[in-house]
């Protein structure tokens, strides 16, 4: 095989490889990751965060507006302090509420933001006061099994 044909094939191979990498980066994973410069952080405290993990999405009306930056345990209030990193393009009123939701029955957990009606907007380092904890699956399943057991019990 002549050298130029070989070079051509390797060139095509590299182009295809880079195209595949770009496809993975842009189409499969959203590279629209919120970067530090263009975001602000707010803290929300929850009684129970369930299975929420760092980097979980923060959504409002179903749109990803940010990510969970970190999760800490507050040893004084016995609450979980969750830091949300939200894109600067999205501004929320001060009385916005945060809830931990689950996508699908067994899906991943994320934080849902419900905008309030306040005139003032959330700023960096602000706190979200209205929070709703995660639905603990064990309790739900407990309910289900309890219900089922009653249903199926011999009369």
């Amino acid at each position: 095989m002549s050298k130029t044909v070989l070079d051509l094939w390797v060139g095509l191979f590299v182009i295809a490889g880079i195209a595949a990498l770009l496809f993975l980066a842009l189409k499969v994973g959203s590279m629209t990751a919120v970067n530090v410069g263009n975001s602000y952080e707010v803290v929300a405290r929850f009684d129970n965060i369930g299975g929420l993990k760092p980097r979980a999405p923060v959504k409002s009306a179903g749109v990803v507006v940010g990510r969970v930056a970190s999760i800490q345990f507050d040893n004084e209030t016995y609450e979980a302090a969750v830091t949300l990193r939200i894109d600067k393009r999205y501004q929320f009123p001060k009385d916005t509420s945060a809830a931990i939701m689950t996508s699908g029955l067994l899906g991943e957990q994320y934080i849902g933001l419900e905008a309030g009606g306040d005139d003032k907007m959330l700023k960096d380092r602000d706190r979200i006061f209205l929070t709703q904890s995660a639905v603990v699956l064990e309790n739900l399943i407990g309910h289900l099994i309890y219900g089922k057991a009653q249903e199926g019990a011999p009369q």
Binding site: F13, G17, L21
Partner: peptide, 8 residues
């Protein structure tokens, strides 16, 4: 490159 092509 091969792994990326496989995944894609």
């Amino acid at each position: 490159f091969l792994a990326a092509l496989f995944s894609a």
